[in-house]
Computed example of a mutant assay.
Amino acid sequence: MVIDAVGLTKAYRDVLAVDGLDLHVAPGEIHALLGLNGAGKTTTIRMLLGMVRPTRGRVSLLGSPIRPGARAVWAGVGYLVETPSAYPDLTVDENIRMAARLHGLRDEKAVAAVISRLGLDRHTRHRARTLSLGNKQRLGLAKALVHRPGLLILDEPANGLDPAGVVEIRQLLHDLAHSQGVTVLLSSHILTEVARLATRIGVLDRGRLVWEGAAGDLVAQARPRLSVVVHDRPKAAAILHAAGHPTADNGDRALTLTGDRAIRRPEDIATLLVDAGCPPSRLAVEQDDLETCFLRLVGTR
């Protein structure tokens, strides 16, 4: 495993920020951590990177245990955590060159390539403090990528980017993973982007990993239902219940049916109600969106 964390726990006095987290990320995988604010995503990433010492548990990256003084592993790791850092009075070009030198890299082509890939060509002579939030994020990503790491750990990599920039970063990470075999662990709150990009997703809630699986499995959590709008809801509910179709009232003039028979053959429901003198004015099969599935997993409405 490229990332192997077992029993990862972090307590701050009476606050348990991360609680017994097991995380295993395979080579070439794009693994996303999802969670509400305060779920423990950033604390987890900081422990993986050795920025915060775990209360309990162990971590290894690229086969090397993360502990004080373990330096060799960082040659293969690139990271961006929370707010991107830069020397404010150095230019974009100088900041990236400085990051390259810290990794022992003096390849001019590597610096030029990462500047071009992150769309920073027009800003190379601009001081870092003058950049927009989006371009500061691009600079942080460029510094993380300049030494061509085999593992990228990114905390909200699309933060501050406009929609076009979000798509560019998605394509960049996709290409790195699928063309160059780079392993990516990222946290994000942009659920639709995560679903398009990630191969696996872990959902954190109050420091615990409450769900983990393939990205497609999260989408499959969506529950189909038949929504029926009628004038007389109590009468329609009684008719449907008597026919073996239990209903729920969603409070918006509609009855909800979740049984397989109703969802597969909504025309039978319509016929049943019409024959009983309670015709529906609307009848439609609906499905939860990705946000609803996510909020259900973390127990939030």
Rank of each mutant, 00 (worst) to 15 (best):
A144M: 06
R129V: 05
H123Y: 10
S132I: 06
P149V: 05
L145E: 01
P157D: 07
P163R: 06
L133A: 15
I169P: 00
G134Y: 04
R122P: 09
A128Q: 05
G165V: 08
A164D: 15
I153P: 12
L152S: 08
A164R: 15
I169A: 00
N135W: 13
R122M: 10
T130W: 04
L139P: 01
R127S: 11
A144Y: 02
H126W: 12
V166R: 06
L145C: 05
L154D: 11
L139W: 00
L173A: 02
G119N: 03
R129G: 04
G140N: 05
A177F: 03
I153S: 13
V166G: 10
L172M: 13
L161G: 09
L151N: 05
L151P: 05
H174T: 12
D121N: 09
R127V: 14
G119W: 01
A142N: 06
L145I: 04
L154C: 15
K136S: 12
A128L: 09
K136I: 04
G150A: 12
V167W: 06
L139G: 01
I169N: 00
A144V: 05
H126M: 13
R127A: 13
G134S: 14
L173I: 03
I153N: 10
L173H: 00
L120Y: 00
G165W: 03
E168I: 03
D162E: 12
D155F: 12
L151M: 13
L120V: 03
H174A: 14
N159E: 10
K143F: 07
H174Y: 06
L176P: 00
A128R: 03
A177Y: 03
K136M: 15
L120A: 03
R170F: 02
R129Q: 09
H123W: 10
G119E: 02
P149A: 08
R127I: 12
K136V: 06
E156K: 07
V146M: 09
E156H: 09
L154K: 11
D155M: 13
V166Q: 09
R125G: 13
R122V: 12
L118M: 11
L151F: 08
